[in-house]
Amino acid sequence: MGLKISAASGSREGPETSDPKGEPMTHTHNELADQLPDFADRIHELKQSDRHFARLADEYHELNRQVHRMETNIEPTADEEIEKAKKQRLKLLDEIQSMLSASPAS
């Protein structure tokens, strides 16, 4: 499973595997728990107790899924737009990590 690169054009093609409906089956990388494994429990706690944190986590999750769809060509997108979305995702991750580092564990 993975992306195929067209030798002629160098362009991205979708994942090699699909579900029964023909939709690509892929694992979304860069989820918060994957990016910040030491904070997995704290992420869960703050999502329940801090509205601002929960909103940031939701934004990150949605943006991460959007980047994944762009990169796997489910939503064909210009490379510049993909890079812009990745930078936004990184900015959110930095803000989330700052909040996690600043908040005392319960």
Rank of each mutant, 00 (worst) to 15 (best):
M1I: 03
M1N: 11
M1L: 07
L3P: 00
I5N: 06
S6G: 08
S6H: 14
A7Y: 11
A8Q: 10
G10F: 07
S11P: 03
R12F: 07
R12Q: 01
E13H: 05
P15D: 09
P15E: 09
E16P: 00
E16N: 06
T17N: 05
T17D: 06
S18K: 14
D19N: 06
P20S: 10
P20E: 10
P20M: 07
K21C: 06
K21G: 07
K21M: 02
G22N: 07
E23L: 12
E23A: 13
P24F: 04
M25I: 08
M25C: 01
H27Y: 09
N30I: 04
E31F: 04
E31V: 08
L32A: 08
L32S: 07
L36S: 08
L36V: 05
F39P: 00
F39S: 01
F39N: 02
F39K: 00
A40V: 04
D41S: 06
D41G: 11
I43F: 12
I43T: 01
E45F: 10
E45L: 11
E45H: 09
E45A: 09
E45I: 14
L46H: 06
L46N: 02
L46M: 03
K47D: 07
Q48C: 07
S49V: 15
S49D: 06
H52K: 02
H52P: 03
H52E: 12
F53N: 11
F53Q: 09
A54V: 11
R55P: 02
L56S: 13
L56I: 15
A57D: 04
D58M: 09
E59Q: 15
E59D: 15
Y60I: 09
H61S: 15
E62I: 13
E62S: 15
L63G: 10
L63W: 00
L63Y: 03
N64D: 14
N64F: 11
N64A: 14
R65N: 14
Q66P: 01
Q66G: 12
H68F: 10
R69P: 00
M70C: 08
M70F: 15
T72S: 05
N73T: 12
N73C: 13
N73K: 14
N73H: 13
E75W: 03
T77P: 00
T77C: 01
A78N: 11
D79T: 09
E80W: 02
E80Q: 08
E81S: 12
E81K: 02
E81I: 05
I82S: 01
I82T: 03
K84V: 14
K84S: 11
K84L: 13
K84N: 09
A85V: 09
K86S: 06
K87E: 04
Q88M: 07
Q88C: 05
R89S: 02
R89E: 01
L90Y: 03
K91I: 06
K91N: 08
L92V: 03
L93D: 02
L93H: 00
L93A: 03
D94R: 11
D94P: 03
E95M: 08
E95H: 04
I96R: 01
I96F: 05
Q97H: 05
Q97S: 09
S98P: 01
M99S: 11
M99T: 15
M99V: 15
L100H: 05
L100S: 12
S101M: 13
S101V: 14
S101A: 15
S101H: 13
A102E: 09
A102F: 08
A102Q: 04
S103P: 09
P104A: 15
A105V: 15
A105Q: 13
A105L: 14
S106H: 07
